[in-house]
Amino acid sequence: MVENEFEYIEFLVQGGLQDNSAYSYGRYLEAVSRHLNINLNRSTVASDREVREILDRLSETDLAERYKNNCGTALRAYLRFLGQEQPEFSYPEEISNPEGYAEGAKKQITVNSYERDRQARNRAIEIHGLDCFVCAMNFESMYGEIGIGFIHVHHLIPLHTIDSTYQVNPEKDLVPVCPNCHAMLHRSNNPPTIEQLKDAMQKQKSI
């Protein structure tokens, strides 16, 4: 099992890797997990030392040398992902910021994004839970273990309208949404509110 594999792939794409290559990295990690019968997560891939130990074990398998090298590249990228040396996610509301709850400063990645605070995100999830505020989807209920703890967080106040940093209120400003609904909330320059998107879904279902 590879912890946060989906987010890892998005991390690679955000860093400039082509989609097919990013998915290949995910498959290499799955191969490591399967061949060595280990879970890859923050505990087992905590530093360069753990990566070297995993690669030493992998060298004893009958995998092709080139395949082992590719697994090593994927593992080192996974370590960077776990350490968050690059932005965590490519959706506009999901870029992490380690500096407290202040938000609003633009950051140039592949497009202009806004800094985000993981503490604020986690606090919002503690308050509101993990069900999408629009469609009520829960990833654990839908996908089981692999979906545990996964959700996006949407900022109710569009940060492109804010010129200076401000203090985010996780209870009032942030709500959990699934990636599909999150994308729809950023679909246009005049994005719908949560309630408007809910209404649109209900109308579509009634057709």
Rank of each mutant, 00 (worst) to 15 (best):
G26L: 08
N70T: 05
Q14D: 08
D62K: 06
E53D: 12
R27L: 05
D62V: 09
E53L: 12
Q86G: 10
L12R: 02
L82H: 08
L40A: 02
P92Q: 08
T73E: 15
L75M: 06
Y91R: 14
G100Q: 07
T61W: 00
E88G: 09
E7N: 09
E88R: 09
R76D: 10
E3R: 11
K68P: 00
L58C: 03
I95M: 10
D62N: 07
E10I: 10
E7R: 12
E7F: 04
T61R: 04
T44L: 05
G16N: 02
A64F: 06
D48K: 11
S90A: 09
Y91G: 06
L79Y: 09
S96A: 13
Y23P: 05
A22Y: 00
R27E: 10
F89V: 02
F6W: 14
V13L: 14
G15C: 07
E5W: 02
F11I: 06
A31L: 12
V13S: 07
D19R: 12
P92Y: 05
N41H: 04
N97Q: 10
R76I: 00
R80G: 00
N41L: 03
N37W: 08
T61H: 02
I95H: 05
S24G: 12
T73F: 08
V32A: 01
R52L: 14
G83L: 13
E94Y: 01
L75Q: 03
F81A: 00
S47V: 15
L55Q: 09
Y8P: 03
L79W: 05
G15D: 07
Y25I: 06
T44M: 05
S90H: 06
S33H: 05
N70E: 15
N70H: 11
R42H: 07
R52T: 12
D19F: 15
L82S: 08
S47M: 13
L63N: 00
R57S: 14
E60H: 14
Q84G: 05
P87G: 01
R57H: 14
F81D: 01
E85F: 12
R52M: 11
I9D: 01
Y23M: 15
L82K: 09
V32Q: 04
Q86S: 11
L79K: 10
R34A: 15
N4G: 14
A22D: 00
A46F: 06
S47F: 14
E5K: 13
E3N: 11
E99C: 06
R27P: 03
I54R: 01
S24L: 11
A31H: 08
D48F: 06
G100E: 08
Q14R: 07
S33F: 02
E93T: 15
E85N: 08
L36N: 04
S96K: 15
A74L: 00
A22M: 04
C71M: 07
